[in-house]
Each structure stands twice: as structure tokens, then as C-alpha cells.
């Protein structure tokens, strides 16, 4: 099932061997200075550090590049609109609009920050399998309801996708071919409506089944989370990296 698998969480790299909680804490330490960075130098340092981290996680290059392309589709829009709307020294004119140097610098800063944050998330969070992510977030003290939502959403996306495909297949088997007409829209609307109703019913049955096994609103994780020396080293390094970025930002 394309799009719903989590291939990045499968590896056995140094990063994958870190405790998921340490990876999440490391991400917080790293992403705060990146998000708050006001200078190009800080952002550039962040990008380099994130790229190093990603190299340690050893994800499949093709996949990362494809995802990077998707992210930078958004930053491309920044390069169009920010320099045209920011005041400052004009590099060139597009009719009545000026493309400014200051705007371009801001777009560059945003691009660097976006990519740095994206690479760090890819290295640290995408490397955690969703069930583990739920347990780790719960262990870090996030609201349990949010963690349940995450876990159940991940678990049932597959089921709902499969149900949707089954309905679609049965529609096709009866000669349905999507076109731009009322019949097609109505069919899709019914299909989605049915999917919603079925998901609702299923949620109720699953909840009843959970109650029958003594569910009292709390999930217990079987996974044994344990901090080790590597995690302490990693968090120390993340702290240093964070401090370095802040210092570089101050010096600028």
C-alpha cells in the first residue's frame, strides 16, 4: 500500500538504535534554535548539522530526495512571493512590482531553516516506527488522548484504505468509470459517505471489543524503553549543537 508504509523506520543505523524518547528530545533541542534563527549563518549551520545527522541515519537516498522535492515545492512559492512583497533594494522589476534583495535574503533564510528542520525530522522522527512513537510520546508525558489518536489513526488508516479500495473495486466491477459528470460525483460522494458510516460503526465495534478485554482508557506499552550511554551522548551532542547555533546567531 503506497504512502502508508514507513520505510524510514526500518533501518538499523546508529540513529535507529537510540531510544525513541532521546530522539524526540534531541529534535526539540535542535529545532528550537533553528526555528528562531534570524541569521543565515545559524540556519546554514543547522542545515549542515541536520544533514550530518541524516547521514548517520542512512535512509534510502531516493526517498529522501523525493520528499525534499515535495517540501521545496512550498519554498519555491516563497521565492516568488516574499521578494515581491518585501520592501527594500530592487534587484529587478516585474512590471510594477520590485523583486527586492532583502526579500530574497529572507526567502533564502526560510528555505535553509525549512530544509534543516525537515532533514532533522526525517533523521530523528521518521526513523521511529509509529507504534513506538506513540509509546515514546506517552512516556514523555504528552496527553494520553493525543497518543491514542496517533496510534489508532496509524493502525486504522490501512483498514480504511482497504475498505475504500474494496468499495471502489466493486463499483468498477459493475462498470463504473470516473468521468466529469454528475453520476461520477454522486458515486464518489456515496462511496465516501459509506466509508464514513462504516468507519464509525467499526470504531464502535472495536471500542466494544476493547471494553470486553478490560480497557479502562489507558494503553500500556509492551516496549521496554531504556536510556543508555549512547542516548546520553546523543543528547549531550544535541545540547552542544543547539548552543553552537545560538552562539553563532549572537556573533552575527
Amino acid at each position: 500500500m503506497p504512502g502508508l508504509d514507513t520505510p524510514l523506520s526500518q533501518g538499523r543505523s546508529l540513529v535507529h538504535r537510540l531510544d525513541p524518547r532521546a530522539r524526540l528530545l534531541g529534535l526539540v533541542l535542535f529545532s528550537l534554535p533553528v526555528a528562531l534563527a534570524g541569521s543565515l549563518r545559524t540556519a546554514l549551520l543547522g542545515l549542515v548539522l541536520a544533514a550530518l545527522l541524516l547521514a548517520l541515519a542512512r535512509p534510502p537516498a531516493g526517498l529522501v530526495l523525493r520528499r525534499l522535492a515535495a517540501v521545496n515545492l512550498f519554498t519555491a512559492f516563497l521565492w516568488v512571493f516574499v521578494p515581491l512583497s518585501a520592501p527594500g533594494q530592487a534587484l529587478f522589476h516585474l512590471g510594477p512590482l520590485a523583486y527586492t534583495r532583502e526579500g530574497a535574503a529572507l526567502a533564502l533564510l526560510l528555505t535553509l531553516k525549512t530544509n534543516a528542520a525537515f532533514l532533522a525530522v526525517t533523521a530523528l522522527v521518521a526513523s521511529i516506527a509509529p507504534p513506538e512513537l506513540g509509546c515514546a510520546l506517552q512516556a514523555l508525558g504528552l496527553p494520553e488522548k493525543l497518543c491514542h489518536l496517533l496510534l489508532m489513526t496509524h493502525r486504522y488508516l490501512f483498514v480504511i484504505q482497504r475498505e475504500y479500495l474494496r468499495l471502489l473495486t466493486s463499483a468498477r466491477a459493475r462498470g463504473f468509470a470516473p468521468r466529469t459528470n454528475g453520476h461520477t460525483y454522486r458515486t464518489y460522494a456515496w462511496l465516501l459517505g459509506m466509508l464514513l458510516v462504516k468507519s464509525w460503526d467499526r470504531a464502535e465495534r472495536v471500542h466494544q471489543a476493547m471494553l470486553c478485554r478490560g480497557f479502562k482508557g489507558k494503553f500500556y506499552c509492551l516496549a521496554d524503553l531504556r536510556y543508555q550511554t549512547a542516548d546520553a551522548l546523543f543528547l549531550g551532542a544535541a545540547l552542544l549543537a543547539s548552543a553552537a547555533m545560538i552562539l553563532v546567531g549572537r556573533a552575527a
Binding site: P131, L151, R155, V159, Y220, L222
Partner: peptide, 21 residues
């Protein structure tokens, strides 16, 4: 429907769910 009863990421997690509760 067993489909409604099993919701955990792995079989082991699912079988341990009741005992944990």
C-alpha cells in the same frame, strides 16, 4: 469478526492487551 477485535501493531501486543488491563 476477528477484524474488530485486533487493533494492535503486532500480534504480541494484542494478546498482551487484556493481561495488561
Amino acid at each position: 469478526h476477528a477484524d474488530d477485535q485486533l487493533f494492535s501493531p503486532t500480534v504480541l501486543d494484542d494478546v498482551a492487551f487484556g493481561p495488561l488491563n
